[in-house]
Write a protein that binds this DNA or RNA. Structure first.
Length: 802
RNA sequence: GCCUGUGUGGUGGAAUUGGUAGACACGCUGGACUCAAAAUCCAGUGAGCCUAGCUCAUGUCGGUUCGAGUCCGACCACAGGUACCA
């Protein structure tokens, strides 16, 4: 059989008959299968894409056959740096490059037979789409959720350009190799930290895999502790946050962030201004990498003239600057207890500061006695006035209560998750629809003027001072203030790549709506994404952004529920045959087109499902691929052995396989679903007088979601029944999934010695008796006392002897 | 360092969740067909030994149990994420 012919025949049928079209309002139950829409790069579809798309396609196809109205859409996440880089190099408008790439991707996807509803396709770069991304940004702004702030960004002094964290990996500019510095820049921010608690709680209303939930929980990084006010000698105060209030009597100094607001306020009172300012400058030149990797916990500088009072015991201690304290986490200041925190310990040693032990348990000569070592071990406090002698756990409560009662402390939660930096100094992104007026400040564009289109230009390089390329286009930048009409300027930053992908799944529910981003009716109809698949690398950030976006829309009445993604699963990567990530430079890239040409789309699909555990990484293996082609050839061949009998040749085999394939598909065990089908075929091949039409039909049907072309063709060729993709999924009779007879093992003292054939309704005493009669069992129990005989129904017999 | 995941034949991987370890497939070996090769088909394939059988085997060392790849404790290795988060 010619796979190319068959594939194009059925692909044409699916396209023309619109079997995969999802209609809003259909009375059937809905099921929304989503796979992360790809970034259409110039390299074309990767075999890794094929893995997850096939898996989701299988789910979508089975759900359709099970009678659901299935939404299985596809689109393009096409804004972002790679297209812009390509445009800079080749002087092509990114829009044109994207168009080309989409064409390639779409062709490749069609050649693989994915059952997407192409009528709902869109790209994040379509003005009809990004109009609504901009509109939603305006809602964030209008609800006080978007604000401008000056924050440090990665800056390459030689390229004169702002770099993303990815481009500044290792503290070095990816393009020129210079050291990256931190530069203050005014950026749009979204108040995501306001949603930290809701994002944490919302996880209970999802069915995400545990490792995905954990990823989210860790990223949000909640810690429970105490915020404590600290008086400064001579007036004034600041606050610190701690999770270890039990160590408060061990404070020997405080450390404040060099990049925080506090030191700026204190500056007039500082005696060693020069030294302090030098240290602040040094810190600003370091990237985050330098701050964390180099001189761990040791650099710092005393702030002379400022001394603070330990609120627990009134003792006066010095204040330092240290770049390990971050200006934007907690309060930007910490209490230092060198006896019980390793970082404080190193700092104290470096700067010759006192170390006071307050928790008993072990000596602290060479390292700090930290909370992971003393918590829950019944350790007691020392050197802590009235709290001395209490256990750590008791002291935690009592010290907190005392300080809270004195109104100098508050019990609070802190989160690692920060606000979302929403500005990029790039050309190829959604323009932020804000206008700056000298008189009125930042003014949002009128909603009815959206979309704010990206201008057509030929230069995409950022400006010398790190502004977006849009800043150079004065025609575009200069406009009028929507409020007062005075001359004003547009925001020239664009949105991050994450913006468009934070709500695309809602748009798929109602993709052609020109009145709203999606109607409430459409969103209520589809309810949620039932099954979402994507890469592990997106389970933290993308998923968090998307959930935040939905929760915000829900809170302002524009989404039907707070969590709109139910199940989220992640696939493992496909590595090259040398077990390394596929990349051009390593020469281990496999192009799916070549495989489809040589072996056929069905072979590639079967192979990618069979290759191994779906959630784990696997490496490419051409030999194994050939084995899958061989399997399909045997599927074709066995059609020649159809006899004219009715029914199934083996009821148990059929029912068992239907059950296994169905269950495995919905528990991500595609590999064992395929193997169950291989076993079924192996059995069929053993029949002396061929297989029945029913045997063949049920087999083809079960294989259909994975290998849709060849199975439809064979089903048609032998006139076995209705087109498979329109047929009801096979049901099984659970009572027929197990045969009445079974071979079970007979053990003596846990070691297998023989086997007996039993029937499932056989009496236990009878089984015991027959077990003892086995020749090999007799040998092993000879001259021994039988202690007991354990019979596990339908599984095993174990004879315990002494 | 911390978090997460993974360690099973020559290879990819199974194992009904504590019950016959190695399903299924690849590879390899032998055979059939062929002038020959490819393709296809058949048989074998964890290691070892005193080979009707026995012993050892799921990263290492202990433990629980009639019985452990699976549970518990300690450790080792690899991969990914994260990083001075107070």
């Amino acid at each position: 059989m010619n796979h190319k012919q068959i594939e194009s025949k059925w692909q044409k049928y699916w396209e023309e008959s619109k079997v995969f079209k999802a209609t809003n309002g259909d009375k059937k139950d809905t099921y929304y299968v989503l796979v992360e829409f790809p970034y259409p790069s110039g390299a074309g579809l990767h075999v890794g894409h094929v893995r997850s798309y096939t898996a989701q396609d299988v789910i979508a196809r089975v759900k359709r056959m099970q009678g659901y109205n299935v939404l299985f859409p596809m689109g393009w996440d096409a804004f972002g740096a790679p297209a812009e880089q390509y445009a800079i190099k080749n002087h092509i408008h990114p829009k044109d490059a994207v168009k080309e790439n989409i064409k390639t991707f779409k062709g490749q996807m069609k050649s693989l037979g994915f059952s997407f509803d192409w009528d709902r396709e869109f790209s994040t770069t379509d003005p009809d789409y990004y109009k609504w991304t901009q509109w939603q940004f305006l809602q964030f702004y209008k609800h006080g959720m978007a604000y401008k702030d000056t924050i440090p960004v990665n800056w390459c002094p030689s390229c004169k350009s702002v770099l993303s964290n990815e481009d500044a990996a290792g503290g070095v500019c990816e393009r020129c190799g210079s050291r990256v510095e931190q530069k203050e820049k005014s950026q749009w921010m979204l108040r995501m930290s306001d949603y930290a608690e809701d994002l944490l709680k919302g996880l209970d209303d999802t069915n995400f895999a545990d490792r995905v939930k954990l990823g989210q929980i860790n990223w949000i990084g909640k810690s429970h502790g105490v915020e404590l006010d600290v008086d400064i000698v001579g007036g004034g105060k600041f606050s610190i946050f701690t999770t270890c209030i039990e160590t408060v009597y061990g404070i020997t100094f405080f450390v404040i962030a060099p990049d925080g607001k506090l030191i700026k306020e204190l500056m007039p009172r500082v005696n060693n201004k020069e030294e302090v300012e030098k240290y602040i400058l040094e810190t600003s030149k370091k990237s985050n990498m330098d701050r964390t990797e180099l001189n761990k916990g040791k650099t710092g500088c005393i702030v002379e003239g400022i001394r603070a009072i330990n609120p627990a015991n009134g003792k006066e201690v010095p204040v330092f600057l240290g770049d390990f304290v971050l200006g934007d986490y907690g309060t930007g200041a910490v209490m230092a207890v060198p006896a019980h925190d390793q970082r404080d310990f190193l700092y104290a040693k470096e700067h010759n500061l006192d170390i006071i032990q307050v928790i008993d348990g072990r000596e602290i000569e060479s390292s700090a006695f930290e909370k992971q070592d003393y918590l829950g071990k019944g350790c007691k406090l020392i050197n802590s006035e009235e709290f001395t002698g209490l256990t750590v756990e008791e002291a935690k409560d009592k010290i907190t209560k005392k300080l809270v009662d004195k109104k100098i402390a508050r019990v609070v939660n802190n989160y690692k998750m920060r606000d979302w930096i929403f500005s990029r100094q790039r050309f190829w992104g959604e323009p932020i629809p804000m206008i700056y007026c000298e008189k009125c400040g930042w003014v949002p564009m009128n909603e009815d003027e959206l979309p704010l289109l990206l201008p057509d230009v030929t230069e995409y390089e950022p400006t010398d001072d790190g502004e977006s390329p849009l800043a150079k286009i004065t025609d575009w930048v200069n406009t009028k203030c929507p409020k007062c009409g005075a001359p004003a300027k547009r925001e020239t930053d664009t949105m991050p790549n994450w913006a468009g992908s934070s709500w695309y799944f809602l748009r798929f529910m109602d993709p052609h709506n020109d009145k709203e981003f999606a109607s409430m009716d459409a969103m209520k109809y589809w309810k949620r994404v039932d099954w979402y698949n994507g890469g592990m690398e997106h389970t933290a950030r993308h998923l968090l952004y998307a959930r935040f976006w939905v929760q915000f829309l829900y809170n302002i009445g524009l989404a039907p529920s707070k969590e709109m993604i139910w199940t989220r699963v992640s696939h493992g990567m496909i590595l090259g045959s040398n077990n390394e990530k596929m990349s051009k430079s390593k020469g281990n890239v496999v192009n799916p087109d070549d495989i489809v040409n040589t072996y056929g789309a069905d072979t590639l699909r079967v192979y990618e499902m069979f290759i191994g555990d779906y959630t784990q990484d696997v490496s490419w293996n051409e030999d194994s691929l050939k084995g899958c082609r061989k399997f399909l050839d045997r599927v074709i061949k066995i059609g020649n052995s159809i006899n004219d009998k009715d029914g199934y040749s083996d009821d148990v085999l059929v029912n068992k396989t239907i059950k296994k394939v169905t269950n495995d598909i919905f528990s991500l065990k595609y590999n064992t679903a395929v193997s169950a089908l291989m076993i079924m075929l192996n059995e069929y091949e053993k029949y002396n007088d061929g297989i029945t039409k029913d045997d063949y039909r049920v087999f083809l049907h079960l294989l259909n979601p994975i290998a849709p072309h060849i199975t439809e063709e064979l089903n048609e060729k032998y006139a076995l029944g209705e087109v498979l993709c329109r047929s009801n999924w096979q049901e099984y009779d659970d009572s027929k999934t197990i045969s009445n007879e079974k071979m079970i093992g007979v053990q003596v003292n846990g070691k297998l010695r023989d086997e007996i054939l039993i029937s499932l309704d056989e009496d236990e005493e009878e089984i015991k008796k027959r077990s003892l009669e086995c020749d090999n069992v007799k040998k092993h129990i000879e001259n021994k006392e039988i202690v007991k005989i354990i019979v596990v129904k339908g599984k095993i017999v174990n004879i315990v002897v002494k």
